[in-house]
Design a protein around this nucleic acid. Sequence first.
DNA 1: GAATAAACGAGACGGTACGTCTCGTCTTATG
DNA 2: CATAAGACGAGACGTACCGTCTCGTTTATTC
Lengths: 201, 201, 201, 201
Amino acid sequence: MSLGPAQAELPPPRRPGRQRSLAAQAAVLDATCRLMEHTCLRGVTTEAIAQLSGVSKATIYKWWPNKAQVALDAFLASMDRDVPTPDTGSALADFTAQLKSVVGFYTGPGGRAFCQFIAEGQSDPAFLALFRERFLQSRRQEARGMWRRGVARGEIRAGLDSEIVLDLIYGPVIFRLLAGHGPLDDREAEAIVATVFSGIR
Amino acid sequence: MSLGPAQAELPPPRRPGRQRSLAAQAAVLDATCRLMEHTCLRGVTTEAIAQLSGVSKATIYKWWPNKAQVALDAFLASMDRDVPTPDTGSALADFTAQLKSVVGFYTGPGGRAFCQFIAEGQSDPAFLALFRERFLQSRRQEARGMWRRGVARGEIRAGLDSEIVLDLIYGPVIFRLLAGHGPLDDREAEAIVATVFSGIR
Amino acid sequence: MSLGPAQAELPPPRRPGRQRSLAAQAAVLDATCRLMEHTCLRGVTTEAIAQLSGVSKATIYKWWPNKAQVALDAFLASMDRDVPTPDTGSALADFTAQLKSVVGFYTGPGGRAFCQFIAEGQSDPAFLALFRERFLQSRRQEARGMWRRGVARGEIRAGLDSEIVLDLIYGPVIFRLLAGHGPLDDREAEAIVATVFSGIR
Amino acid sequence: MSLGPAQAELPPPRRPGRQRSLAAQAAVLDATCRLMEHTCLRGVTTEAIAQLSGVSKATIYKWWPNKAQVALDAFLASMDRDVPTPDTGSALADFTAQLKSVVGFYTGPGGRAFCQFIAEGQSDPAFLALFRERFLQSRRQEARGMWRRGVARGEIRAGLDSEIVLDLIYGPVIFRLLAGHGPLDDREAEAIVATVFSGIR
DNA sequence: GAATAAACGAGACGGTACGTCTCGTCTTATG
DNA sequence: CATAAGACGAGACGTACCGTCTCGTTTATTC
């Protein structure tokens, strides 16, 4: 469980002693982001974060349990520019537009980071759970909204398991992102959503 | 590129000098398999492989460039028991049966290994490429056969991009396997194939 | 050039950060001494020093470039009990007494260490230079004092090359020590000095 | 104990099977000599000798117990050009001439090899003993001849321990050679012998 | 304005795996 | 059956990163 500074809810009765440096926290996240653009998570060392940010290793370890969670906080912080959930009145259009923007996001540095977190999670189940909670679930929540509107409007067959269909839409993108066995662009996004909506029969 | 023993194509005129020990090779692969059942790939050390197999580290490094490729060879060797591609006369039945068997495979140790390779690939692009070549492509090839038969029989709409549809079928399974955000069993496999065949409209 | 701790000249303004552990340094030197008593320098592994001293290999390599310099520091540290230069009023008596004590020293563990350093120096010229600077020169300096007093008192012919005569006195001891082709005891020490003083004509 | 080929006395009745390759033996010694001119004994690997000579490692290990003895054989073989013991009718002249030629020898590649053997001997007492037997003793024997002639002619005081005096003459040279703390040339050789003959009183 | 308390930088440290190297032995095919 | 080619086990090497620790310094709150 991250103790990252972003989660701190300020209790007015300040404790004595030197206050925690917000500048240090920001510097760490910023440095981590910059390092992640050039190497994978394994290639980012805590030492390098410390050096680039000017924050000591001890301070980093005081506030985060390991570099993966630093990177996750950095990733989430750099994503506050919320990808808005489209609401065009058509579920097909909504999902198409959203998958395109998702593909756009994953094609950039965000996608590289995403892969690193999935990779890290394969040797650290606790981190994987955290990643699900703090990233995947909120994304999924938004998609569920689009789904419900589609069902309500009668555009989507009732009785379907939304979780499966959502994985049907996002799964192929993430599979290609991680395995790199096929292209990933707007055309593919459109084809995925169109196929899911029409079936292959 | 792996120089793993599995690739050796035997030229009858044997070279002089001591022959490569098949026992050592087998011991390494076996030891690696056993270790992979208890830890993740990162947790498997070359030292442990050497110790458990009785093969020296130097010999391991002579034939494999790193432990990931040892593990990949071990994985592939332990998979020669070919998962037979079903051919029931119905594409829906074929894909359902096959996805069930795939889910069965991924639910066991094979799935854990698969995740480790995907994870390793995120920090080693060359390894990822190797994994695609030596594992994903052959699997994909089999699926393409089922696809073609379905198209030929008219069960599947013509004009579809088979690659996308195959990812539509396997992507969700792999996404869930890696992210662990949903269940993975026969019921889900059936629902995925059924939904892909019928569409959600 | 050794960065060994023995050379630290303490500047009162301590540097920031954790201070270097004097206990670790002492443990390394002590462990090295103990190991050197049972094997030759080649037989002393960095790993063994680390294990016996409880100091990690990384720390050892941080402060010493190789095990030879660790051993040299250990040797010099264990020799601070300065062998006093005799001053009896007679050069013959001085040299005889001193060579006897030198022979006594070289007959014990110190002599074994000395041989190891000479041996190591044959494949590492930089180390040999260091050994000359840090051990031989100070010894030689003391001998030169005895020499000068003898010359001043008229006991020693003027016009002689002191360096050659000093090697005439110490060379045979070191030759026998290294090659082991003859005995090395008080009797031999006396005979050497006596012969050098009288000549063989 | 060396089983080196230099000791082989050929029995005319050839044994069945492939005959032992004299060419291989020579190639090994030659290669070793050439390698010793560029690196120290530690830097010469058995592998390099095998490669340069075209003789396999197994063959080398069959005839010599280790590379040090290979090098010793190579050294002795390259020294058959016997340094003749001078016999001028004067012990002083004899020793001076001989020490000059010794210094000349030790200043070249032979001296480097000598140092390597002494060094090796410090971690391998058996090798040191072998080196004494096969090299030092024969040299010493020749010097003893010069000594005896000098004593017989009355040029050298009777009652002296010849072993000590010989070490008095050769020790300084070898000390300087190994420790490198002073020059080593004809002038020094003359001074050494002259001082030993006259004494310093 | 002192005393106290926490956060921070610098960086030393133990631990552990890495991949490389050399040694000396062993195995196989060839001459 | 001696040899070359070369695979092999053993084990030390020196490097790298991890996460912990110990300092002395800085910044705030409390007495």
